[in-house]
Design a protein around this nucleic acid. Structure first.
Lengths: 388, 388
DNA sequence: CGAATTAGTCTATGTTGTGGACTAAATATC
DNA sequence: GATATTTAGTCCACAACATAGACTAATTCG
């Protein structure tokens, strides 16, 4: 239910309105902020002063726009103080990044390890070491890290910070957030969801409108971004594109069904035993007919599943990430052809397929960005004591 | 973007908080309201006084709850003043209803006509007559109708009040809201969307959690309700369940694709030429094997499509409405079996299939309820001058 | 019947945003 | 180059709203 509004909520809300305007529309003078938000110049000045005290905004020089009249002082988001930590546990690596309030990635770290061979405790201890050292680095840069999110390859319970099952890691019900025991609030989320947010803030972003981000890995997940926020469904398990039915009489899937998308376009279906992704791409570049045919099959199946997704979710754009990013030139054509054949008559516009602009770090970047997003949406709760 | 909060917005917001609490939690005393909302008794008293002046709330008698201390005065939503109009244009009938603020249906009217034979202008003129006479009736009951919504069997542009295409009526780009020219604000929406909202407010309602409401008519639409609001997608065309791919090599569909759900479970697929729904139900009751087999085929196909919908949308419950309501006993079993087979291993809980509790009036009821919802969410904008 | 308890109102007060006067700093005009 | 004009930002008196706590009202308990 909507919360009761008291004076402090009004102030917190207006602080968020101003910070949000700075985030969206770049550097703005106080006068421009007043015009954009509908608040008076007086109020904006007071709010901006608070944001500057908290280290969330800074003044840059005067704006000489050639107009006559006194020039304004541009104010923009400050990346000097507030930051967030994004972490990822995946099958063969750990990764982390620190992103500042202006959504600039400040630190990166990746560590190749075989997490299938190790126990969850050891993996989490390794991630903890990586996180602690990044926090120290961040502190060295004067950054105060307000929170973190761990990206995990499987369905999670966000309220308890637990990963329910991560089949590719062999994990079940691991309380990742608690076990990490970092000295800051830590959340968990699904890798596919966070990768979608990574694309929003560190990739093609707002130009995509509402988009569906497809993460091709061993499984196939998808994250739908609507109005700048994830659509999660009732229990947080929306976007399971991998088990959308492509052909009800198709081959059996590990989920118990038959003919799921994963059996046609998942990593195991695309890569012959023993070959890795780089090998497949090399064969595709060389024009190997069997590799091209495999991608065509996968692309057509993907087109069927995406047709269904468009009918149900109605996105503006569809972004292909994960293994589909390097395979995009060979997969997107057949998928797009299928979609146009099936949707062309009933939709005014068939969503375009585009390739992800973020690399392997999409998930931790999206996680850190999500924390930043929360801070911008409620700066009042994160007003730090002004530093000397 | 979030709006700037000024004093009037704070007041309007708190008015909505109080009215919303009354809507959800039935009659409450001012003291209970203060506790529930977190506002002080003073503030609640002032807000309640405004709501009573506006005719949106009334005091009922004192509450004698057996506790000691002064008994409170119960306050509840008043249905005496504010109301909303729900209208529907469909292939063979026009319908309208008036719903009051407490979401009680006060007036109903249905008119059987063959709208395929008539021009859009004539159909709209007929609906206008029906609406005007209902408004007069409502005024006779002392009701002030704040707005209306027209349910239409096809995709609409809600911002312009236009229906893009209604294939079953043979309409294209008809500006329904403007053409109606009623003396109150009129919106348009898709029939399937409004039927889902009808189920929310006039059927099983909140007990369903987040649910997908399937409207089986000639086409098959679906509306997803998340957190008490419709999920519409980027352009408002989400929920096109009818063209979800059930079998990519299936029979050709009028949409240009093949093997869409509509070809297996739409009205035209279920009813042999010349038979109507009542006839099919009679044969099913009599145990006619070919009728039962047809429902089993339809149910299995529906199960495939719903499996996909669950994977992508993750609802708590699935409600079957339209023609699937009378066919529920014969269709739901095969659908549920298919869903369990395909989802049982990867979901902790497979959404239950339930039958719609609202009859044919679901769409106009949902439309009127939507208007009421908007009033409750922003009573400040609808504060009428106090009446003598 | 008086004490205890709870509901609701009343009054003084505090927080927040507003509106307009005011100062500051630039360009345009003569 | 002096003055008018324009725009940015601050200051101050004021208005809107919610709050806290005193107060009155109406009930049950002993």
């Amino acid at each position: 239910m909507a919360q009761a509004l008291r004076h402090d909520a009004m102030r917190a809300g207006n602080l968020a309105v101003v910070l949000g305007a700075l985030d969206r529309d770049g550097p703005l003078t106080r006068a421009a902020l007043a015009e954009a938000t509908g608040l008076t110049k007086t109020t904006v000045s007071k709010l901006v002063a608070d944001l500057i005290d908290a280290g969330m905004a800074v003044e840059s020089g005067a704006v000489r726009d050639g107009e006559r009249g006194r020039p304004g002082v541009a104010v923009h988001l400050s990346g000097h103080r507030v930051a967030a930590l994004g972490l990822e546990i995946n099958v063969d690596y750990l990764a982390g990044c620190v992103v500042d309030l202006s959504r600039t990635a400040r630190l990166f770290r990746t560590q190749a390890v075989d997490n299938r061979a190790a126990s969850p405790e050891d993996v989490i201890a390794g991630l903890r070491d990586l996180a602690i050292s990044m926090l120290a680095d961040a502190a060295g840069h004067g950054l105060s890290v307000a929170g973190g999110i761990v990206a995990l390859p499987g369905p999670v319970d966000r309220s308890t910070g637990t990963v329910h099952s991560a089949p590719n890691l062999g994990w079940r019900d691991v309380p990742v957030a608690d076990a990490l025991a970092l000295p800051l609030p830590v959340l968990v989320d699904n890798e596919a969801n966070l990768a979608a947010l990574g694309e929003l803030w560190f990739g093609s972003g707002a130009a995509l409108g509402d988009f569906l981000h497809v993460s091709g890995e061993i499984g196939i997940g998808a994250g739908l971004v609507v109005d700048g926020a994830l659509f999660r469904g009732a229990h947080g398990y929306a976007g399971e594109l991998g088990h959308v039915v492509v052909s009800p009489d198709g081959p059996a899937c590990r989920c118990g069904g038959t003919g799921c998308l994963e059996r046609y376009a998942g990593q195991d279906a695309l890569l012959p035993a023993g070959e890795d992704l780089a090998g497949l791409v090399a064969r595709l570049r060389a024009g190997d007919p069997s590799a091209v045919a495999a991608c065509e099959r996968a692309g057509s199946a993907l087109g069927i599943a995406l047709t269904t997704a468009v009918n149900l979710l109605d996105p503006d754009t569809i972004v292909l990430g994960g293994i589909f990013a390097p395979l995009f030139p060979w997969v997107s054509g057949p998928a797009e052809a299928t979609m146009h054949r099936r949707l062309g008559q009933i939709r005014a516009r068939v969503p375009a397929l585009v390739v992800s602009q973020v690399g392997a770090d999409a998930a931790p970047l999206g996680g850190a960005g999500q924390v930043i997003q929360r801070i911008i949406a409620d700066p009042g709760a994160h007003l730090l004591a002004p530093q000397p």
